[in-house]
Nucleic acid binder design. Structure first.
Lengths: 225, 225
DNA sequence: GCATTTCATTGCGTATGCATTAAATGATGC
DNA sequence: GCATCATTTAATGCATACGCAATGAAATGC
């Protein structure tokens, strides 16, 4: 995130952003507890804006407020992952359906196709970070094209909740070579306005991804991420 | 809400509850703007806990913060209603599917069947308030039985967002006599563990309800509720 | 008149300090 | 030793104060 933009930001905004980053980076470890005053010092500001940021992050499911026990970075159990993937499956499928129905012009779908191409390249280079980035862009853009702002924000919220865990599992699973076929099918369906196909294809894609992740977590006995 | 419990509540909690009530009751009108200090005075507390409550309510989509313009009670357009109903359709269908798959014992489903019976009674008495209450309980319980805590909280959030509008439309539409047939079908499917039937039936039920509401809003040219 | 600048107002963002209350510690009785 | 109660500690919840910055009004220039 741009440091220049940050200068003219309110302290609460800064707290929000920096806490998010620290959470995603694992700098604030999952399951760890922190005091308001401690976080305030880390961010070199008073408790007030920190409290506000923490409240918002609690609403987004990233922190848990336990008065006098500490502010906990919520850890994810495999069951939580299942919950989240189920929500993502339903809402992204809806988004795919709506995107197809909206009959977008091909140029509106450029971001989507670029993301798909980037994933191909990333896989060819075995570049997992690049793949994850492109995959993120695909899903973000898909949901944006769906045009439902609630779906959009919920999906982003859920994606944020699994962000940390995703980084971990990404390097444990086999290269997602086949997954881009699904992405292409979804793309084509949207382009051709085949809403039912878009929906069903994406749904299958997501259900499959969920199964892989859940088995992975079970196999490696990862209880909290 | 119990007044005794409220005594031992923190001011922020009280602010949260009372603002919610005022919003649902229309005492804070949709689209209206308010200053922090104004709300603080109404609730006879300082700005600090009000700010905290307002932040949380913003996160729940009930308020919109527009610094120096006022805190706006977000109004719902017909498009917003469509968005919300679409989310509810997907997530409640998922919940129905999961509830069926979870193979609950019949006694676990008692709340559900009671709610259905209550709707029958309410319809027989043409008691719309009682019907709305029972319908609410049905959907709440359905989602609870689904066992996905994220689905649960999202559905509650969306239901809160449409709460006001629902009250209005409720009295404009014909008595929902047929709708209880759907509820019963969903109930039976859950009891018998037929997850696909539960899902599809509830989905149809919701899609139908959405169509009715949307047409109603169009017909009456209700632009903001 | 209309546009532009200046100025006053005031709502908000943040820091700070105090009151509250939950947890931890120690004291007392059994 | 162990349980119970008093005491201490310290983190939170809230009120308050203050400065900044945005907004609207007034004043000035064109």
């Amino acid at each position: 995130m741009n440091k220049v933009l940050r200068k003219q930001m309110s302290s609460s905004q800064r707290a929000l952003l920096e806490l998010r980053e620290k959470i995603f980076a694992g700098e604030l470890a999952p399951g760890s507890d922190h005091l308001e005053s401690e976080l305030a010092e880390q961010l070199s500001m008073s408790r007030t804006p920190v409290r506000e940021a923490v409240l918002m992050l609690e609403g987004q499911g990233l922190l848990e407020l336990r008065p006098r026990k500490g502010i906990r970075v919520v850890p994810l159990s495999p069951e939580d992952m299942e919950e989240i993937y189920d929500v993502l499956t339903e809402l992204e499928s809806l988004a795919a359906e709506c995107a197809a129905r909206a009959s977008h012009k091909e140029e509106d779908l450029r971001f989507l196709s670029t993301a798909i191409d980037d994933m191909d390249v990333a896989i060819a280079n075995s570049d997992l970070d690049a793949w994850a980035d492109a995959d993120d862009r695909f899903h973000t853009e898909l949901v944006r094209l769906g045009g439902n702002s609630r779906v959009n924000s919920i999906v982003h919220m859920m994606s944020d909740q699994v962000r940390r865990a995703r980084m971990t599992t990404l390097f444990m699973r086999p290269l997602p070579t086949k997954s881009n076929e699904d992405h292409r099918k979804v793309y084509e369906a949207i382009k051709d306005g085949e809403s039912q196909v878009a929906r069903d294809t994406h749904r299958e894609h997501r259900l499959h991804a969920k199964r892989i992740i859940v088995e992975l977590l079970k196999k490696h006995r990862l209880r909290f991420l």
